[in-house]
Design a protein around this nucleic acid. Structure first.
Length: 747
DNA sequence: GGTCGATTCTTTTTT
DNA sequence: AGAATCGACC
């Protein structure tokens, strides 16, 4: 064993070795980006076990994500395959460790819980809260933001709980909710830590007393987690914590920037540094150094590497087109798509990249956290199923009947009456829900289920989102039927199981158009990129107002800088930054000052404007998009859009029927933000209108139709086909519009 | 139940 | 700066 360990130690650099061999009872390691933080942490654990003879069961290893915990555990098991897994029960996230303590050692009965308590997700807690508001007739403001409001109300100390900021009953609700959760034997993620903290303070018995507390990414600790750590340390544990104050990007969610330093002082911890970065080329590191905030040393060991490429783009759409071409080329040069990543500041920025990459046949994956609860129609549908499968769930029944968006739109009071009375004949939808269990044996597929509930009527056929809504519902039902088949369960109970765990299936319902290949480009927010690394990183939208995002205070501004630091240090070999001259939303045109903060000698400016996208190209893309939407609408087979190969998308002639496209266009104009940018790209680059399509139809052009535009006034239609319209305006010249997206008025 | 003016929040996300 | 939402008033 010891011999093995010596070998491990030899692989470390002197700084890493010092951290592992450190003997102080409390030690905080200031680990720079890419400096082998996890390796040090794991070697430290092995050192404590093999050399210091501390049992694994006497260590508590805390991480923030399951992913990090799994990595540590699997690396330990890889080095020592004989290790019984139950020795590592104290290894996990803060929450899972708290759960372990509560179940195994702490007297939860003191808080009114049983040992069999359930862990519930935030959604379920919110439902409990709404029930309580109704039952107790509480006055709560900003109900739609109740989740956030409750969170902050629970974080407030007892003494300050007198009057709420909005003069409502939020604290009363928090108290009632706490009682109700204990009564129903349910704990939220928050409760797990809160209750563990409470009982660790009170419990006399030394049932929980690890010898070592080892924390990964300490800089992300919030107050609750810090208290948890403190409870363990005051029970006699030594501390070994690793983190990077330059990577604090979650302070808005409760982790304090100074935590690294308060830890140091509170426990007189020894501070060590890991300065050597093994990940990035020195050019990238040098750029990163411009965004360091506490002057810590950051040393590179790699070659200078290529310069950082800065690109000026017209807008996000053009950037996406450029990136698609660039990535194809890199792929041809032998770099796998899995080594490339696109980062952006806001979730909403991903859509245009998804659309373009899909069209260009670039395999990609978007990291986003969306559940069925985020899509109103699916939320409604899940409640519909929940009540149908368990008519005791009256809250769901009332929700379904009284929803303003969907269903019969019955008033809340009347819905409650109907549901509580349980008598048939007063609402068709209610009767159908009550009859599902009886009838579902005959409903063999999603279409029959859809028809059974007559959802064509209840999903508001007149609303703009009807097609999208019914698609989503069909997909949800489809997944449910697949699940039931797979489980080989009896249909009603299979459905019940599916509905109970529906939050887990949210992703599959929503990402129907995302390629599932292994080797694919990753699209994500900079936040989501933390802890990852890629050979090629493209950060898009480096405009002021986006990166950095316009923030109110200095602290926010500093966090934006750390965020950008995190983003650029993900890159190993190649980094590209882009900014827009015509940004869509909140951003200002032109490069962010963050780009000007990087020494010019490290930068190389790409072509001023990326490869020009011809009108022809744009047209084709829009048509194809329409086609795939139409295809989805009529045959509900999402696989179609998945199987697009790059070759396919190039030579397609429009096969859609004109009637269909006209019917659908108003809905699209509401839903499709990339379309708007398409239109704008065209509007403001009239010089491109010379590249005319060969498919123009002369008959239409002759008719001298007039249109009115909000900005250009009245114009004469020069050219028109299914998707495009070209008109000449006095004083502005010829402009091309995409019919579906422009708000032109026909005269 | 509908309109007006005032007030509040807006982004990032894990468990 | 603009959207969403609240409360007051009719």
């Amino acid at each position: 064993m010891e011999l093995n360990f010596e070998k491990e130690l030899d692989r470390l650099n002197p700084y890493q070795r010092e951290a592992v061999l450190d003997e102080s009872p409390a030690c905080v390691v200031n680990a720079n980006v890419g400096s082998g933080k996890t390796t040090v942490l794991i070697t430290k654990i092995q050192y404590l076990h093999h050399i210091k003879k501390v049992g694994y069961e006497d260590m508590t290893v805390l991480t923030f994500t399951n992913k990090a915990a799994d990595e540590i555990k699997s690396r330990l098991l890889a080095a020592e395959p004989e290790l019984p897994a139950d020795k590592l029960r104290g290894f996990g996230t803060f929450h899972s460790t708290a759960l372990y303590y509560l179940r195994e050692f702490l007297p939860v009965e003191d808080l009114g819980y049983s040992k069999e308590f359930l862990v519930i997700d935030p959604e379920e807690e919110l439902e409990l809260a709404y029930d309580l508001i109704r039952q107790h007739k509480l006055k709560i403001k900003y109900k739609n933001r109740l989740k956030k409001r409750l969170e902050s109300a629970m974080a407030v100390r007892e003494a300050e709980k007198k009057v709420s900021k909005y003069q409502d009953d939020i604290f009363e609700l928090a108290g009632l909710l706490k009682e109700e959760k204990a009564k129903q034997d349910k704990m939220t993620f928050f409760d797990l830590l809160e209750n563990a903290n409470f009982l660790l303070k009170e419990a006399e018995q030394k049932s929980v007393s690890p010898k070592w507390v080892i924390i990964d990414e300490v800089q992300d600790s919030d107050t609750q987690q810090l208290v948890f750590t403190d409870r363990l340390i005051s029970r006699g544990a030594s501390l070994f914590a690793v983190g990077d104050p330059n990577q604090v990007i979650y302070s808005w969610r409760g982790s304090a920037f100074q935590i690294f330093y308060t830890l140091k002082h509170k426990y007189q911890a020894k501070e060590l540094t890991l300065p050597i970065n093994y990940r990035s080329s020195t050019s990238i590191l040098e750029a990163a150094r411009c965004f360091l905030q506490n002057g810590s040393p950051l040393t590179g060991v790699r070659e200078p590497g290529s310069k950082i490429i800065v690109r000026r783009q017209y807008d996000a759409f053009q950037d996406a087109c450029y990136l698609a071409a660039r990535m194809k080329k890199l792929h041809e040069e032998g770099i796998s798509y899995g080594e490339m990543a696109v980062f952006y500041r806001l979730q909403s920025q991903s859509k245009i990249f998804e659309d373009v990459f899909l069209k260009e046949g670039i395999p990609f994956e978007v990291s986003l956290k969306k559940t069925v609860g985020d899509v109103p129609v699916l939320k409604w549908c899940i409640r519909l199923l929940r009540f149908s499968l368990n008519t005791k769930d009256t809250a769901s029944g009332i929700y379904v009947l009284s929803s303003r968006e969907y269903g019969e739109g019955i008033s809340g009071k009347k819905a409650e009456e109907i549901v509580r009375a349980g008598q048939p004949g007063r609402s068709l939808l209610f009767d159908r829900m009550c009859g599902l269990v009886e009838n579902c044996g005959e409903l063999g597929n999603e279409e029959e289920l859809f028809t059974y509930f007559e959802l064509d009527r209840y999903l508001k056929p007149v609303s703009a989102s009807f097609h999208e809504d019914s698609d989503a519902v069909r997909r949800l039902f489809g997944i449910m039927y697949a699940y039931v088949r797979e489980q080989q369960a009896e249909r009603a109970s299979g459905m019940r199981e599916f509905v109970n765990s529906s939050s887990l299936y949210g992703l599959d319902v929503l990402r129907e158009d995302i390629s599932r290949q292994e080797d694919c480009v990753k699209l994500m927010t900079i936040h989501a990129s933390k802890g990852l690394e890629f050979s090629c990183v493209f950060i898009t939208g480096v405009n002021h107002g986006l990166i950095p995002l316009r923030t109110g205070d200095m602290e926010g501004e500093e966090e934006e800088r750390r965020l950008f630091f995190v983003g650029i240090t993900r890159a190993k070999d190649h980094l590209e930054l882009s900014y827009y001259m015509n940004p869509q939303e909140r951003a200002d045109p032109g490069e962010s000052r963050y780009i000007r903060m990087i020494p010019p000698r490290l930068l190389e400016h790409g072509e001023d404007i990326g490869p020009a996208v011809s009108l022809q190209e744009l047209k084709r893309q829009v048509q194809e998009q329409k086609r795939s939407i139409a295809a989805r609408g009529s045959e509900q087979s999402p696989e179609q859009s998945l199987e697009q190969s790059p070759g396919q998308s190039l030579e397609q002639s429009p096969e859609q029927s004109p009637g269909q496209s006209l019917e659908q266009s108003p809905e699209q104009s509401l839903e499709q933000s990339p379309g708007q940018s398409l239109e704008q790209s065209l509007e403001q680059r009239p010089e491109q209108s010379s590249e005319q399509s060969p498919e123009q139809s002369p008959e239409q052009a002759k008719q001298q139709k007039l249109v009115r535009h909000s900005r250009y006034g009245t114009g004469v239609v020069v050219n028109e086909d299914e998707t495009m319209l070209e008109a000449e305006f006095e004083g502005y010249g010829k402009k091309e519009f995409i019919k579906a997206f422009s708000e032109l008025e026909y005269i």
